[in-house]
């Protein structure tokens, strides 16, 4: 690639260090605030004796449901990820390998594209009415359903890219060897797209964990997810800055964990479609 020498190399290193700092600094600053008492935050004191007071408050105080929120988020993100992987992978295989009539395949993909482009809030209104009608409003089940739907386009496209990369020969060889179509899918194709499943799964989980607009409007206090809880921290009449910081820091933990363990897959997933 490009080779920088002398001054330009030094400038390059400086710019990179600067951008790394800009990426990290806000996170560190907020983390720093989360270990301070409210009064110290307001005074803008830089270095203080760290306290876990905010975390204790967020997690265990009477007024906070944060642990309940975490549980809700875990359930919603976990269940919706598994479901969207199943539904999306099957659909992707179908579109990549089986002979569908053109208009069905094109129509399906076009519709997922449209759905992926419109703001989810355009559909939250009717969702609200529909779930209210059938008595599912404010239930985790309804939220799971919407999250599956929201993540379906991404999953289908990603898995299609993986299936399309798989040579058809391998499946055909399996079918000559004695597989039915479904055996070839289950025993040959699916194990071979395992990296794709992980990538799509990690992203679907993160997106579901992070999702706010729908959760805000379809959940109650009992079913609120973590993002909804964080929003509530900042919307309270008396804003608790320390708790807000602590809750924000806590909410990033799953993403950070996944980043360390599934980094390779996330990068693959995020860049796959774009580069080819």
């Amino acid at each position: 690639m490009l080779v920088l020498r002398g001054y330009s190399r030094l400038i390059g290193i400086f710019l990179l260090t600067l951008s790394a700092f800009i990426i990290v600094a806000p996170f560190l600053w907020v983390a720093l605030q989360s270990f301070k008492y409210e009064i110290q935050i307001l005074q803008g004191t830089w270095f203080t004796e760290p306290t876990l007071h905010n975390y204790v408050d967020v997690l265990w105080s009477q007024r906070s449901d944060f642990l309940k929120n975490v549980l809700n988020s875990m359930i919603v993100a976990g269940v919706s990820t598994i479901c969207v992987l199943v539904v999306g992978t099957l659909a992707a295989y179908s579109l990549a390998r089986l002979r569908w009539k053109r208009w069905i395949a094109a129509g399906f993909l076009a519709w997922t594209l449209v759905f992926n482009m419109i703001p989810p809030l355009t559909l939250v209104g009717p969702w609200f009415l529909i779930f209210r009608e059938i008595g599912l409003l404010q239930s985790l089940f309804a939220l799971v359903l919407t999250h599956i739907t929201l993540n379906l386009p991404m999953t289908v496209w990603m898995m299609m890219a993986y299936f399309n990369e798989l040579p058809r020969d391998i499946e055909e060889a399996a079918m000559v060897d004695g597989c039915r179509r479904i055996d070839a899918f289950w025993r040959v194709s699916l194990p071979l797209v395992a990296p794709g499943l992980i990538a799509a799964g990690v992203l679907a989980f993160v997106f579901s964990w992070n999702e706010f607009a729908v959760a805000l409007n379809l959940t109650s206090r009992a079913t609120a997810t973590v993002p909804v809880a964080i929003a509530q921290f900042s919307q309270q009449y008396e804003v608790q800055n320390g708790q807000m910081a602590a809750a924000s820091v806590l909410s990033t933990i799953p993403a950070l964990l996944l980043m360390f363990f599934g980094q390779k897959f996330i990068i693959q997933g995020l860049t796959m479609g774009a580069v080819k």
Binding site: V30, G44, F212
Partner: peptide
């Protein structure tokens, strides 16, 4: 690359709340 994935994966709400603290007129960084 590792460093730069972090913001993408954080909950947008958490990012909003972090920056709200940082933008604070009185004590924001």
């Amino acid at each position: 690359r590792t460093l730069l994935i972090v913001p993408i994966l954080l909950p947008p709400v958490a990012i909003g709340s972090m920056w709200k603290l940082m933008y604070s007129f009185d004590f924001g960084v």
